[in-house]
Design a protein around this nucleic acid. Structure first.
Lengths: 155, 155
DNA sequence: GATGAAACGTTGTGGTT
DNA sequence: AACCACAACGTTTCATC
């Protein structure tokens, strides 16, 4: 990494992780910078890829999806690549990671109800063995990424 | 649910899930509503809890965290409650869900490096058995929640 | 929901250290 | 290179219909 983030950068990241619609002028007031200075720093954070984007979080239950589940997949021989293509077309999947370990894939999915879940799992069995965990409650949701303590920085 | 979301609501949700900093005036232009009309609908979506918040997404690697991992926990007898209290104080944990199945808890964590991961797991073993999966790549990240097809709605 | 006006925020230019 | 000051422009918000 050929850049350094100072504490003003982290104040800005903290503010935008808490509320992505916060005004740059308001953030500037809180940290002692003028609006153009904040705008410049935000633009740079975006250009560097530190800020990947801004999104609204929609409640799956309030949007009509009663269930949220974690599904892992242990792909059959030669079935991982076809799955990786197919998964992009599945509207139910909101997150999907390739992982190490006994399973290859872990997904977070939203589903209308138990029947929807059943049909969804049925569509996956051609690709591998699945294991399903229903999410009962969200203990922590999208906690902000914090600055590494200075002694811990490896930059 | 004692409310109904029409296609204008879903256009607004789509726009804000794609870019939470999009201007309400711009969204209005795209869907044929005046700025105050969009603002009113957004306010109502927030008040209903359909929109839970707006977040900037920060790249864990660009922020100095080389590793992201999924860790599951199968809590020992009587150790789930203490864990649920403790986990809120762990800066590494960006998501944590209670789930059904053999494990009770699944967490998404960001870590500086393998040594940090090792120390983090050490801190968990008092609460239960853990299983760790390193995230190799993100196939799908925060895909938007879409409208249920009308025939599928159970409202 | 629309309109119009006032308050506020963002963005560009130019200048300072 | 990073910031400030100021001005033009766009956006949000509020009253009113």
């Amino acid at each position: 990494m050929d850049y350094k983030l100072d504490s003003l950068h982290w104040s800005i990241l903290g503010a935008l992780q808490k509320n992505a619609r916060a005004s740059l002028a308001g953030i500037g007031r809180a940290i002692g910078l003028t609006p153009p200075a904040v705008a410049e720093r935000v633009k740079r954070l975006e250009d560097l890829g530190v800020i990947e984007g801004y999104w609204a979080s929609v409640s799956h239950t309030k949007a009509g999806y009663q269930l949220k589940a974690i599904i892992t997949l242990r792909a059959f021989m030669g079935k991982l690549k076809p799955f990786l293509e197919q998964v992009k077309t599945l509207e139910e999947v909101i997150n999907c990671y390739r992982i190490t370990g006994n399973e290859n894939i872990i997904m977070e999915v939203v589903l209308r109800d138990q029947f929807h879940l059943e049909r969804f799992i049925d569509r996956l069995i051609q690709y591998g063995e699945t294991r399903t965990h229903i999410i009962l409650s969200e203990v922590i949701s999208n906690a902000p990424i914090r600055r590494l303590s200075p002694t811990e920085e490896t930059q």
